[in-house]
Structure formats: structure tokens, C-alpha cells
Design a protein around this nucleic acid. Structure first.
Lengths: 190, 190
DNA sequence: CGGCAGTTTGAGCGCTATCAATGAATGTGG
DNA sequence: CCACATTCATTGATAGCGCTCAAACTGCCG
């Protein structure tokens, strides 16, 4: 299945019938407050699996952060997941635990890091998860990044320019960043 | 096993050999930055299960938020969890998914709610999870609450005072709060 | 009573949000 | 191919929320 940027893959409250894996592009999951404020919970790059849900319906919304393609797997309910055999159950469990670890690190950024530190940690995490080189693609918009880090787009933009001014990174267009000094970036994360 | 307040149950990086369930009191799990800043990831009340880990060692620290008692279950590695039978696997998986949902809501508070809104959401969430009445016990310290919500102890204290001044709550000592207007508290959460 | 840890309250500042404008990139229709 | 509109990103000026520093207050224990 293919989705254009900002197209919804599933909505909060929808029946959780599928689990998805990203084939191309990036997907974001997010939650909203009633007045429209948004918190992006996670980005999923190629190979990423999303759509886990504890109850019968999604508690979160998923949408394309850029044009992307995903494959959908019918979501077995919890009772039949076990019956489906050890391997499937094991894989799913392992992926859920990975999600817990990601969320813990994310909470640390949201609650205790400054804007600059959030950006540094974001770039480093993104490198580890999505790319092997020191040049990272950021196909999502500044708004997506801001809502992921609990900041505004202006603060994200100012942060990137400041990181560039201080020779941590080199901006190569607004969706591509070269990490010039990974060591120093790591120390920034505190 | 019994622990006094602030006593460590397991540390970050320790071999993850057990999963724990709370029998009495409250346990907190948290992560640290190198300079000592702390983010409390979750509180676990009676019946709460903690100590899940994706890898072979804990990525988080667990400690007693107040004097408490827990029971430890030997943590089977992922390969043998499945072999242990459907019911165990199912329960663990379900608990892990619950953790994901909690973390999503927590991230929403950390990233997008104001201090007052964080406190309101915290009190309401605490009610749902730990108590049935409109009087909630908060056995943890202000520091624990602050580090859970990404605030300082002063801001937490001022927030409680303000919520009381505006008749949302009634403070009954520093570790007990009566929710006087749950409806209005809910609207505060946005 | 004194000492200590935890909480509350006060004063002032700084980081980030808000408001506003400009610039860059992309798409659209003539 | 070019004017125009639209969206996104950057930059600037200002304000406010929450942090920092500091002091007073409370409850508890020796």
C-alpha cells in the first residue's frame, strides 16, 4: 500500500486490525490534545513495524511523514497470536520490547534535555536507526521534528542553524544533514 | 523482597534476570543523563509489573519510591518464554503493550502539556490506576513527581497550590490529595 | 529542644514560545 | 516558460512560563 505525505494510515480509535511494516519512506505515529496540539510518538523508517495495540482499537494515529509504502499484516488478536506459533509471537514480543526502550529514551529527551540537546540526540538516534554514514536524510518536515521533540518549528530551525554555526553539523538543504563532529554531538546530549 | 525508600531494585546495565511485581508501596523506573538529570519513566503501584527488557541487561533503573515490597520472577530469556507456554507469553506480551500505551500518553504530557496540565493529567491518571475514590495517595516525593513530569519541585509545589486555590483539589498533607472537581480537571488536560 | 529532610513561597532571570516578516522551494495556470 | 500562489523554512523582536537561587516553614526523629 502506498501513501502520500500526511495521508492517514490509521486513526485513533479505529479498530486495530492490522500491523504494518514500512517498505519505503517514513511513517510517524502521534497523539493529539483536544485543542490540536500534537505529540509525535515515533518515526518508523524502512523495516520499521508499527500498529501494536493493547486493546481492540488503536490509541494513536499513524500517517505518512513523507510519501511512503507499507505492507499490512492482519493483526491476530492476542489469543490467537500464541496459537500461531512460537516464532511469530517471539518476533512481535521482541518488537514491542524494542518500542518500550525507544519510548524510555524519548521520554528522557522530552522531559530533561534542552532544545539543542534534543536536536543532537535526535540526529544521533536517527543515524543509528536509519543510516550508516554520517549524512542523514530527514524526509519529515520541521513541524514533524518539532512535534517529536516537544518544541516549535522556530526553535528547531534556530537549533539547526546554531549547530551549524558551531560546526557540529552541515545543513545540505533542509532535509539533509551531515554530522561533522559526532563525538562532540554525543557530549552535547549529556 | 522489601525495599526502603530510594533503595535500588535493579540498576541500568545490570543483567536482566528478573521481572518484578509490586506487592505493596510504589516503585519508580528512571533513566539518567550524565550530569545527573533524571527522568522518571513510570510509577508502579500494587500489582504493577516492571523489569521488562529487550536486551540482556536493563536499560533503566528501578528503585523504591516509598517503602515497598515486590516479588521477583526469574526472567526467562525470549527463546524460552515461548516454550514456557501460551499463557505466560500472552500475559507478558499484553503487559508490554500496556506499557507502550502508557508511554504514549506520558510522552504527550512531557512534550505538549503545560505544567498545570501535566499535574492535572498526572492526578487523573493516578486515580484511574491506583485508587477508586477521589482521594489519591501520593507516597512519592515532590522530586519524583517533578522528574516524572519533566518539571522542578518548585513548579510542582506551586502547581498544587494553584490547583487548590482554584478549587480543583484539596491538599490533605503533602502526600494526599482530594480531587474536588474531576470534571473540570479533565477539561484542564486539554 | 535542635537538626534534618522535604515542602512551600518569593524574587528574578533565561530559554523557548509567540507573533511577525522575509526568504526559499514547489506547484499551478496562463 | 514565466507570473503567481502556496507551503515550508529561516530569521527577528518580544513576552511569558518555568527554572534558578534563596529563604522560610513543616513534620519527624534523636
Amino acid at each position: 500500500m502506498s501513501f502520500l505525505r500526511d495521508q492517514e494510515i490509521f486513526g485513533e480509535g479505529e479498530a486495530a486490525t492490522y500491523i504494518y511494516q514500512v517498505q519505503a519512506g517514513v511513517v510517524r505515529t502521534c497523539k493529539f490534545l483536544h485543542d490540536g496540539r500534537r505529540q509525535v510518538n515515533a518515526f518508523f523508517g524502512i523495516g520499521g513495524v508499527f500498529g501494536f495495540q493493547a486493546g481492540p482499537s488503536y490509541g494513536i494515529r499513524a500517517a505518512a511523514a513523507c510519501d511512503c509504502a507499507v505492507t499490512a499484516f492482519r493483526r491476530l488478536n492476542l489469543e490467537t497470536i500464541d496459537a500461531a506459533g512460537d516464532r511469530l509471537s517471539l518476533q512481535l514480543f521482541s518488537l514491542a520490547l524494542d518500542g518500550l526502550v525507544r519510548d524510555q529514551e524519548h521520554a528522557l529527551s522530552l522531559g530533561r534535555r534542552s532544545a539543542i540537546e534534543k536536536l543532537a540526540a535526535f540526529l544521533l538516534g536517527y543515524t543509528g536507526n536509519f543510516s550508516g554514514s554520517d549524512v542523514v536524510d530527514l524526509p519529515m518536515t520541521r513541524r514533524d521534528i518539532a512535534d517529536y521533540l516537544g518544541l516549535t518549528i522556530e526553535t528547531v530551525s534556530r537549533g539547526f542553524t546554531r549547530l551549524q554555526d558551531e560546526a557540529f553539523i552541515q545543513l545540505m538543504g533542509s532535509h539533509r544533514v551531515q554530522l561533522c563532529d559526532i563525538i562532540r554531538l554525543r557530549t552535547l546530549c549529556a
